[in-house]
Amino acid sequence: MKLQKFPRFLAVVILFYAVIEILFKLDVVNGYLLHIINLSLIYVILATSLNLINGITGQFSLGHMGFAGVGAYVSAALSTLVFKLSPSKPGDMLVFVGCIVAGGLAAAVVGLLIGFPSLRLKGDYLAIVTLGFGEIIRTAFNNLDVVGGPRGLLGIPKFSNFTTIIIASALSVVVIRNLIQSSHGRAMLSIRENEVAAELVGIDTTRYKVMAFTFGAFFAGIAGGLLAHLIQLAHPTQFGFIKSVEVLIMIYAGGVGSITGSILAAFGLTFLSEGLRLGIRSLADATGLPIGGEWRMVIYALLLIFIMLFRNEGLMGTKESKIIELPEVE
């Protein structure tokens, strides 16, 4: 298997990085906007990794944020409680990278453990079992006093920044994209298209389903770790069912099976939810209606319904943008 580097994609990422960095230095992009971009990039990892499970392999998972939670708690426990890292010490950055990867690996192990028994199930039943596992993971954090219980894990050093996040995010996309176009990825796609047929042509479906689950969990763990080191806190409520649904919405709004769609939706929906703050305020000022922030989510939900009604295959369908398309035509 030859590793594809997607030169056009990497060029776009580097360009985006440079532009934002320069605009930030010039104070055109302020800390708020940069923060939203950081969050969007973390959602890119979450959405693309869930897309690997849901969109590519066709396995409906509702517990994705549980894996992110494992990554967040493991990496933050290592960086905060074990190594007591600090961003001001230059060497600690490397240890931090190690902690994040450890978080991802821990999530992958959990993914593997959950994947094996669950993947006998199909469709909605699988969705429910993953939901159950996700909630059990959350409940476990809630009751583990070592990591703060319902108080959450506090005082996490702020290592995540635009640079670390964009590198992790670009790497995830490249690795997932490579995986999809490898023979393994073909096998995964065949499971989505027709599991029985895949089995008949000799594809070990369980193996590939578990593989998708494990990879997806790994990247979700990475995203969770980055999030914890961005907002300097990990709390059980951040990794519950409702949060998993948010990521699910992203991949459906973007188009199931389209990595491009997941990236666009991760940015689009994060910006939409923030943009509505301004939108509501302007609307209230312009019309004099007594509406406030509590209407923001009403509009968000309505937009979601409309997207699904009028473009139910999602923004991109299953298509990919040229930027991360396979280099050679098959």
Binding site: T237, Q238, E274
Partner: peptide, 13 residues
């Protein structure tokens, strides 16, 4: 918490 971090940043920045 994540939304909170965003909102604090927004108000300040």
């Amino acid at each position: 918490p994540a939304e909170g971090a965003t909102v604090y940043t927004k108000l300040i920045q």
